[in-house]
């Protein structure tokens, strides 16, 4: 009886170890083609626009907001040449300003940020294409959840802890 229990215990330990190792190895499996992130240079939105210079200003007052927006825009291929605080805080909504008479660039920036308000206020002295005034309500857009699709293999223990 004891021998059987011992055998069962060993089997369980081996199974658990195998599942653990398998879940660790699974993180190095390449993603299927459809899930790979766009390489910036191949971004179909950016190609026709060329280089788009952006400044990002925090007008909402939340700490690190401008930095987070900058990271998001740079990852999407925009050339953020400056980020910092606006002259004043207190704006609720985010506004994206076109500075060169090219609304396409401003709209592309607004799309990435999830901003709804785009205005044309050209100013050639700024040497910019787009100014972003981040409002208090702005948060980085989360990636879309896939419908009914499980992430990772069924035996990946890490799924249980997400």
């Amino acid at each position: 009886m004891m021998e059987r229990l011992r055998g069962l215990a060993v089997l369980l330990v081996v199974l658990a170890t195998g599942v653990f190792i398998g879940s660790a190895v699974s993180q190095w499996r390449p993603l299927p083609e459809a899930q790979r992130p766009d390489v910036v240079g191949q971004n179909p939105v950016m190609r026709p626009l060329g280089r788009v210079r952006v400044e990002v200003l925090n007008a909402g007052g939340t700490e690190s907001m401008a930095r987070r927006a900058t990271d998001l825009l740079r990852d999407s291929g925009f050339d953020v040449v400056y980020f910092g605080n606006a002259d004043r805080f207190g704006d609720d909504s985010t506004v994206v300003f076109d500075r060169t008479g090219n609304l396409d660039a401003a709209r592309a920036v607004a799309d990435v940020l999830g901003a709804r308000s785009v205005r044309a206020e050209p100013d050639s002295n700024l040497y910019l294409d787009v100014t972003v005034l981040l409002g208090r309500e702005w948060t980085p857009q989360k990636p879309e959840a896939s419908d009914g699709e499980e992430s990772g293999p069924w035996w990946d223990l890490r799924r249980l802890f997400r």
């Binding site: 280089r51 788009v52 500075r99 060169t100 008479g101 050639s124 002295n125 040497y127 910019l128 294409d129």
Partner: peptide, 11 residues
Amino acid sequence: MSSGAGSTLHP
């Protein structure tokens, strides 16, 4: 159009 062409450099 990028901000390179058409923008004004300060004197």
